[in-house]
Computed example of a mutant assay.
Amino acid sequence: MSSVVVAFLLLTVAAVGLHLNGNARTDRSVGQVTGTLTRVYEQQTAFRILNQRFATWPELEARGMALPTEQRVLASNASRSHWYMKLRDTSTGVVCSRTGELFDDSPFDRQPSCATSAR
């Protein structure tokens, strides 16, 4: 009977450890994707100053903006007064999106919205 209890405890500890490790990976992924979106904000601000409108993703790429290898653009658009981008981390399934507005004062005026999706 004691071996059954010990086996159950070991399985429980292993499951909790895996869950915590998964949460830590997801948290790191959210931080990395939101960091990328902050860099996009900075590029959008510079583009807006020069062109009086926000850039599309292909325009940002043409100006040298690149994503980390594990991130992909799922959606993006831009106008004279707004921009939107949705990114996915392919290693964790984290998806974050963000908008930018003409009158934003800093990259922290709007926080990204993030969720974990199925891989």
Rank of each mutant, 00 (worst) to 15 (best):
A115Y: 07
L10W: 13
T116G: 07
G100E: 00
S76M: 01
T34H: 06
L74N: 05
R80K: 13
S117Y: 05
I49E: 02
T45R: 12
A15H: 12
N23T: 12
V16Y: 09
A46T: 10
L20T: 14
L9M: 14
S3G: 05
S81F: 03
H19S: 12
G35I: 03
R110E: 00
A15R: 15
A14P: 03
A75R: 09
S76Y: 00
S113M: 10
A15T: 13
F108P: 02
G22F: 10
V16R: 03
Q32F: 13
V6H: 02
Q44I: 00
T36K: 06
D105Q: 10
V5P: 08
F47C: 01
T56D: 04
M1V: 14
N51H: 15
H82E: 01
S91R: 12
E42C: 05
V30R: 14
D89H: 13
F54N: 00
T99E: 00
V5G: 03
T99W: 02
T116V: 15
P107G: 11
G17L: 05
P68Y: 09
I49P: 00
W83V: 00
N23Q: 14
Q52E: 09
L37C: 09
G31V: 11
E70V: 11
G64P: 05
D104L: 02
F108C: 00
R53F: 06
N21Y: 15
A78W: 03
A55C: 08
V16G: 02
L87N: 02
A24K: 08
R88W: 10
Y84R: 07
A14T: 15
N51R: 12
L11D: 01
Q71R: 08
T34K: 04
Q32G: 09
A115M: 11
T56P: 03
L10A: 14
A66P: 01
G17R: 10
P68T: 09
V6Q: 02
R39S: 12
T90W: 08
R53E: 00
Q52A: 13
S113R: 15
E70G: 03
V30M: 10
V5F: 13
T116W: 03
V6M: 06
F103W: 04
F8Y: 14
Q71G: 02
M65K: 05
L74G: 06
P68D: 04
P58A: 04
L74F: 06
A7I: 12
S97F: 07
A66M: 09
M85W: 02
N21R: 13
L50I: 05
T99N: 01
L18D: 08
T90V: 14
V13L: 15
R80Y: 06
E42A: 15
A15P: 05
V16A: 10
G31Q: 05
S91M: 10
L11T: 12
L20A: 15
F47H: 02
R88N: 03
D89F: 09
L74A: 11
M85R: 01
Q32E: 06
R72T: 14
R98A: 02
E70S: 14
R110W: 01
R39D: 03
